[in-house]
């Protein structure tokens, strides 16, 4: 039995199933991070004072550059497939994976720096929300890396069997990845700068 519209597009909605599915998933993610940003606003408004300059702006800025670059390589990994350039696709997808790993390494240095000073999440409301937001964002990075690793490794076989479906899956992975980038675009000023 085949599920209709897994690859081909349903005429009246103009969509394949996966495209709508991933966007709905991202919609729920918006609400997840929305709740945490709302928490941030309420805690900050209720605080007697809010710390400034507790985080390293250079490290945060470097991570922003890394994630933005990874978004470019991710969209190129998909565009290469559309142009039938398998070698380039591999290159860009692996590059995205490596950039994601670099992000986490950078994050590890930030975390260990704080913890070495005894400034864990228990230390203040600011650090509590900082560790929670960046930790959850970091888990999303790890999730994205697992999916990418799958498509670099065993998932790559699908390209030969069904090129369109493989390109779709890379597109959906990309949508998720750009969303993770998009969250960071807000996290960086909110936590590091303001």
């Amino acid at each position: 039995m085949n599920i209709p519209y897994t690859v081909e597009i349903r005429p009246d909605t103009g969509l394949a199933n996966g495209k709508l599915g991933i966007w709905l998933f991202l919609a729920s993610e918006v609400m997840l991070f929305g709740a945490l940003f709302s928490t941030y606003i309420i805690l900050r408004n209720g605080a007697a004072e809010w710390p400034h300059g507790e985080l390293s702006v250079p490290l945060g800025a470097i991570n922003t550059v890394i994630l933005i670059s990874s978004s470019v390589t991710m969209v190129m990994a998909w565009a290469s497939l559309k142009m039938n350039d398998w070698a380039k696709h591999r290159l860009y997808l692996i590059a995205t994976f490596v950039l994601a790993a670099l992000f986490l390494v950078n994050k590890y240095f930030e975390y260990s720096d704080h913890l070495a000073k005894g400034e864990g999440p228990w230390h203040s409301t600011f650090l509590a929300i900082y560790f929670t937001l960046t930790g959850l964002h970091g888990l999303h990075i790890v999730g994205g890396m697992i999916v990418m690793a799958y498509f670099i490794g065993p998932g790559a076989k699908l390209w030969r069997a069904n090129a369109d479906q493989f390109a779709n899956r890379i597109e959906y992975t990309g949508l998720y990845w750009h969303f993770v980038d998009l969250v960071w675009i807000f996290l960086f000023p909110v936590l590091y700068l303001l």
């Binding site: 709905l24 919609a27 729920s28 993610e29 609400m31 997840l32 991070f33 929305g34 709740a35 945490l36 709302s38 928490t39 929670t132 959850l136």
Partner: peptide, 13 residues
């Protein structure tokens, strides 16, 4: 879809 994520966030907190 849209109401459960805030509770998930609250559970994490």
């Amino acid at each position: 879809l849209l109401a459960f994520p805030p509770l998930e966030a609250a559970a994490v907190l």
